[in-house]
Design a protein around this nucleic acid. Structure first.
Length: 507
RNA sequence: GGCCCGUUCGUCUAAGGGUUAGGACACCACCCUUUCACGGUGGUGAUACGAGUUCGAAUCUCGUACGGGCUACCA
C-alpha cells in the first residue's frame, strides 16, 4: 500500500537561500504536487550560534516570491508541527537515549580541546583527518571506554556530554537512490557522528531521521553533499523505526559555479546573482543581490532552475509551473552537477518577458518607472508601450530605458551621432515638417511616414539621412521602436515640441 | 590521504547497442531593419583516455585520468 507522498524541505536560517537551495525546494515541490502530495517546510535551527535573525522570514518570502508555498509550515501550523527544531527538542533526546539503551549509541565526554588533541595526535601523512570511529573510540572518554560506575558518576554530576552513534564494523549499508540507483558504503569507514549535542539539541543526522518519521515523510530529497552521511541516516532508520518504514531517498546533483559548488562569493566575483532575493546579512551588513531585484520574473526563475539538472527529454525549454508539475519526474533528474550559466539564465527571462501579457508586466514596469522618477499619467499609453518594447527587454529594468522616453522628454541627446551629417538643409527640413504636421489630422505612423518621405523628396534629401536625427530628437539616442510609431504614440503636440527643442540644440 | 558521486560542443543538454551524434545559450556570417532589438537562414564546435564484450559501443564491463562532494558538538 503506497503511502501518501509527503516531502519536506529543511532550510537552516543561517542567511540567504542560494540557487541550489531553491532548486531543492522546487524539485521537492514539483514532486509533491505531481503526486498530489504534501509539501512541508521544517526549520533547521539546531545550531544557535549560526542562526541569523530574520533569515527564517526571508526563506518564506523567497518561497512566496517563487510561488512555492508549503502546505504546512512553521507559519501555518499544521498537524505535524511544531516545525522548528528547537521546539521539538525533547523528543530528540528520547530517541537518542533509546539508542544508547539498545547499544547503538553511547555517551561521550570529550571536550573540544580533547577532540582537537586527538586529531593532532593521530594525524599522519596517510590519514590527514582522523575520525572518531571504531578504531579510536576506545581511546576516548566515553561510556564504552569508561567503567560503568565512572560513566554514571559523570552523568550524575552533570558533566557535559554528547551522544554519538556507535557505527558497527564491517557491515555494508546500501540503499536505492531514486537518481543514482544502488549506493553502498562499508561501515568501517563511517565515523561515530554526534547525534545529540551537549546543549541537548540534535544534529541534523538525528533530526532528519526523527522528524521524517514523526512527520510521516515518504520521500526525502536533498543535495548531493548529503550523500556521504546517508549511511548514518540509514543506520538510524534501521535502529529506530525499521528500514521498511524509511522514506525513499534522492540526492540532487550540485549546482556548480565557475569553480566548484556555487557559492555566495561566486556571485560577487563574477557579477551575477546567486540568491533568489536580496539578502542583507544583519551580522555583517553585507548585501547579496537577488534574482528578483535584478529583474527576473518568478516564472523565468523557476523555469531556469528546473532545467539546471532536469529536462523532459524533448526539446522544450520553456515550461510554466503547471507544465513543470505535470512533466517533472525524478527519473529524469541528472546525476552529474550542472554549471550555472548567467547568459542562459537571462535568455530564459527574456523569453518569459516576451511571452507575458501586458497585465502581468504592468505593475512591475510602472513601479520601476516611478522609481526612476517618471510619472505615468496615461495608463493606456503604458500598456501600448509595454507591448511595443517588451521584445527588447531582457531584464525588467530594461523597460526603464525603453519606455521612459514615452513619458518624459529626453534631457540628453546623442549629438555625436547627428553631428557628421547635420546641416542647414536638414534643419530647414524639420522646420518645414513641423509646418506640415500642424494641420495634419490623421495622426498615425503610416501617414506621418508618408508625409516625411514626400517632404524629403521635395527637398531632395535622402529620407534615410533624416530618420536618425528625427529619432534622436524624439528619444535622445539610437534605440527604440520605429520612429514613426514613436511619434504616433507621443501625439502631435509632444512630437512637435520635441522637434523644436532638439533643433536648437543640434550642432 | 580516505570514502562517495560524476564525465557528450565553451555552457545546459538529447540520443537508454545501429543517427551525417540532435537542440538551446554564447560566438561568427548573411537576410530582415536607413536606430536598437525581435525574427529568419547558415556556420564553428563534443562522446576524457585505454582495454574488453559485441557483427556493431556515446550507450554495457573494467582500468586510468580528470572534476566535484564529504571527511565539525555546521547544515
Amino acid at each position: 500500500m503506497a503511502k501518501k507522498v509527503r516531502v519536506r524541505f529543511a532550510p537552516s536560517p543561517t542567511g540567504g537561500l542560494h540557487l541550489g537551495g531553491v532548486r531543492t525546494v522546487l524539485y521537492n515541490y514539483l514532486f509533491a504536487k505531481k503526486h498530489a502530495g504534501d509539501f512541508l517546510v521544517r526549520i533547521e535551527d539546531t545550531d544557535q550560534s549560526r542562526y541569523v535573525q530574520g533569515a527564517e522570514e526571508y526563506i518564506f518570502d523567497t518561497l512566496k516570491w517563487c510561488g512555492l508555498e508549503p502546505d504546512e509550515s512553521v507559519q501555518h501550523g499544521g498537524n505535524y508541527g511544531p516545525y522548528r527544531q528547537s521546539e521539538r527538542k525533547e523528543s530528540y533526546r528520547r530517541y537518542a537515549e533509546q539508542l544508547v539503551q539498545d547499544g547503538h549509541a553511547y555517551y561521550a565526554f570529550d571536550t573540544p580541546q580533547e577532540l582537537e588533541k586527538m586529531r593532532q595526535d593521530f594525524r599522519t601523512e596517510l590519514n590527514p583527518s582522523p575520525q572518531y570511529d571504531h578504531t579510536l573510540r576506545m581511546k576516548m572518554q566515553n561510556s564504552l571506554s569508561l567503567p560503568a560506575d565512572e560513566t554514571k558518576r559523570l552523568l550524575d554530576s552533570g558533566a557535559g556530554h554528547v551522544i554519538r552513534i556507535k557505527v558497527p564494523e564491517q557491515e555494508t549499508v546500501s540503499f536505492t537512490d531514486m537518481i543514482r540507483g544502488e549506493v553502498s558504503f562499508n561501515t568501517s569507514l563511517v565515523d561515530d557522528k554526534v547525534l545529540l549535542k551537549a546543549d541537548g539539541m540534535p544534529t541534523y543526522h538525528l533530526a532528519v531521521v526523527v522528524d521524517d518519521h514523526l512527520m510521516e515523510i515518504s520521500h526525502a530529497f536533498r543535495g548531493e553533499e548529503w550523500l556521504p552521511s546517508a549511511p548514518v541516516h540509514i543506520l538510524l532508520w534501521k535502529y529506530l523505526f525499521g528500514l521498511e518504514n524509511m522514506p525513499q531517498w534522492a540526492h540532487f546533483p550540485l549546482i556548480l559555479g565557475p569553480n566548484g559548488k556555487l557559492s555566495k562569493r561566486d556571485g560577487a566575483k563574477y557579477g551575477f546573482p546567486v540568491f533568489a532575493m536580496n539578502w542583507a546579512d544583519p551580522k555583517t551588513g553585507e548585501l547579496t543581490e537577488g534574482f528578483k531585484e535584478k529583474g527576473f520574473l518568478p516564472a523565468a526563475f523557476i523555469n531556469l532552475l528546473a532545467l539546471l539538472g532536469w529536462n523532459d527529454g524533448s526539446e522544450q525549454e520553456i515550461f510554466s509551473k503547471e507544465e513543470l508539475i505535470e512533466k517533472f519526474s525524478m527519473e529524469r533528474v541528472h546525476s552529474a552537477g550542472a554549471k550555472f550559466d548567467y547568459e542562459k539564465a537571462k535568455w530564459f527571462n527574456h523569453e518569459w518577458i516576451k511571452r507575458f501579457e501586458v497585465e502581468g508586466l504592468r505593475f512591475e514596469v510602472e513601479s520601476l518607472l516611478t522609481k526612476s522618477g517618471i510619472t505615468v499619467s496615461d495608463s493606456a499609453l503604458l500598456d501600448k508601450v509595454i507591448e511595443l518594447v517588451k521584445d527588447r527587454c531582457t531584464l525588467l529594468p530594461d523597460f526603464v530605458q525603453h519606455a521612459s522616453f514615452f513619458f518624459k522628454s529626453p534631457e540628453n541627446w546623442d549629438t555625436d551621432a547627428v553631428r557628421p551629417k547635420w546641416n542647414e538643409d536638414k534643419k530647414n527640413f524639420f522646420l518645414a515638417y513641423i509646418e506640415k504636421l500642424l494641420p495634419h489630422t490623421t495622426w498615425n505612423a503610416a501617414s506621418l511616414e508618408e508625409l516625411f518621405k514626400e517632404l524629403a523628396a521635395e527637398k531632395v534629401i535622402k529620407p534615410g539621412e533624416l530618420q536618425l536625427p528625427f529619432r534622436i530628437m524624439l528619444v535622445g539616442g539610437k534605440f527604440g521602436p520605429p520612429v514613426f510609431v514613436i511619434a504616433e504614440l507621443l501625439g502631435k503636440e509632444e512630437t512637435i515640441r520635441r522637434i523644436n527643442t532638439a533643433i536648437n540644440i543640434f550642432p
